[in-house]
Design a protein around this nucleic acid. Structure first.
Lengths: 338, 338
DNA sequence: TTGTACGCGTTATCAG
DNA sequence: CTGATAACGCGTACAA
């Protein structure tokens, strides 16, 4: 019992007693046909429940009205939030969103890029810049418009829509130093293949150097994006002698894990140890104490990325970077050293 | 000067010195060609950076290898998590994911469903069951396979992949009663047009009735999915006399907001007031005290939904519900009344 | 204003 | 095992 396939333009044409060309015109550019024939066509369309076949249309027009995004994972709230804004902006422009995830794996990312491009995308949103030359080569050869987000580098030609992770981390470190801390340690995300994570480390190191300390010798632990990672890392850092008085974390999840470990160890935050985050996700407002962190404009970033992509697709704009602000928001987890 | 568009099968064929048919075979069913010609083809593909044109393929095969999801919003961590698992499962099957969001608005959901269907989807994942008959009518007429998730009803014919919100909430309420509470209140999500939220309310009411209390008279406040909503709601509930000794929340975000308000009011949780959640998101493990909540298998739900859809598309299975377990996880925010 | 006819890139059928 | 060729559904010159 093979399902009757969907009605085609020809079916509509026959029913309305006109040619397929007329139907196509009545649907795509109504001004080109008389009111009466349009009426006829529309009724036939309605009766048959006709919808244009996407494949046929894409084949001839070579436009897909589709834009893709490859992100590490939606499990991470910051990407989910950015993606939501991205999708909304696209939807308002009549474009649908294709989503793929890389799981922070460059090879998998390239594979997903290939799939999306093959599936027909008018543009692509990617996270960060650390990826093999092969991936860029593919993108360039296929001449697919793409934007890189979640980071910003003034020295790169690619179209970045994001904020300067290095500068933001540097600002946070300066703030910590301002509070009088000298024994500063860091819990970073995994930096391999992740420019956001490594830029944040670089920023903190730069700030230490600027204040006359050694960035190179700063105690640092890398951990995966998880509460337990933050807990483990803090425990390890606190074994050090002299003990750090402030721990700068590469993201909020690590920071919250660190806070919970500090409390479990009987330490007061920030009196015994200061802890800072990065991202400003919801989590950071419900910890006790609330987290001093870097606010990242995830939604605005997603919107801006969508708009940039749309403009590139329409040829309105050439690729051109957009830098957004990420600034320190002071709450209670950073204080003076005891 | 816009000459080179994407390379086609013909380009590859010419470069490899074979026919287009051979290229197609080498790519889709490698066993059908000799090793040497396959080698030739693959090299040409690689040199040209060829990717199959989706439109052409969809046109002839009438398969899109695309499945869509319409969710309220990715901002909500529970949907993001489920969607991630959904996407991964799809990707493993060579299917890409189209995402649209409804913002909890039924009209907008239908519009998005229309877009996705018109765009060519082999199936659709939707959240919950509360939507106008019009939406179901459209789906049925277009004969699009779809699954309803995040809820489960044994009395409905649609394919549900989810858990029974009502029963889970009922179990939680029974647990609260077991701890000795008699003055129980509830902070619910907005129930209008949201069957998950209203089923949770129903479940709690049922449990109260079963324990000889009035479900109808239970103090209840509805609030939007936000920390501040939880705060507001708890403040309002605590004005009541006699004051409730336990507050059951419709989700974790509301519960965490409620906890933070309780503490701000100088109340101890659970000594002065017990608070429970629903969802078991990451947030629930970092509050002080940790949240007693209902664990929902978001990832497994996303996976199961994807598999069900894939099976329906392939005609392997007819629509058939899949019920998952959601069970109470006891932590520290629920105690005995003082 | 409307119809005819072709081509878009791919897969499938049928010969060789 | 491989090649020629006919669909697939649609948009659009071009002709009427």
């Amino acid at each position: 019992m093979k399902r009757s396939s969907a009605p085609t333009l020809l079916d509509v044409a026959r029913r309305a007693g006109v040619s397929t060309a007329t139907v196509s015109r009545a649907l795509n550019d109504p001004a080109l046909v008389t009111d009466s024939t349009r009426e006829l066509v529309l009724r036939a369309v309605d009766q048959l429940g006709y919808t244009p076949h996407f494949g046929g249309r894409a084949l001839v027009s070579n436009r897909f009205d589709t834009i893709g995004a490859v992100i590490p994972t939606m499990d991470n709230a910051i990407f989910a939030r950015g993606l939501q804004a991205f999708q909304e902006t696209l939807s308002d422009a009549g474009v649908t969103l294709l989503v793929a995830s890389s799981g922070y794996d460059a090879a998998r990312e390239l594979q997903q890029i290939r799939t999306l491009v093959g599936r027909g995308t008018d543009g692509l949103m990617l996270i960060g810049m650390a990826r093999p030359a092969e991936s860029y080569a593919f993108l360039d050869r296929r001449r697919i418009p793409y934007v890189l987000t979640w980071n910003y580098r003034c020295d790169r030609k690619e179209c970045f829509v994001g904020f300067d992770n290095r500068q933001a981390a540097r600002a946070m470190a300066h703030k910590v130093i301002e509070h009088g801390h000298r024994r500063i340690a860091m819990i970073a995300g995994i930096t391999a293949g992740n420019d956001r994570a490594s830029d944040r480390v670089d920023g903190v190191r730069a700030a230490l150097e600027e204040a006359g300390m050694s960035g190179r010798r700063m105690p640092i632990v890398e951990e995966t994006y998880s509460l337990s990672g933050g807990r483990r890392a803090l425990a390890a850092l606190l074994e050090r002698r002299p003990r750090p008085t402030a721990v700068i974390c590469g993201n909020d999840v690590l920071a919250v894990g660190a806070i919970s470990e500090a409390k479990a160890l009987g330490l007061r935050v920030p009196d015994d140890v200061s802890i800072t985050g990065f991202d400003d996700i919801e989590l950071s407002e419900v910890t006790e104490p609330r987290l001093t962190t870097v606010h990242v404009p995830h939604r605005r970033m997603g919107e801006a990325a969508a708009r940039a992509l749309l403009a590139m697709r329409d040829g309105t704009t050439d690729r051109q970077g957009i830098e957004l602000e990420a600034s320190v928001v002071e709450r209670e987890s950073l204080g003076a050293p005891s």
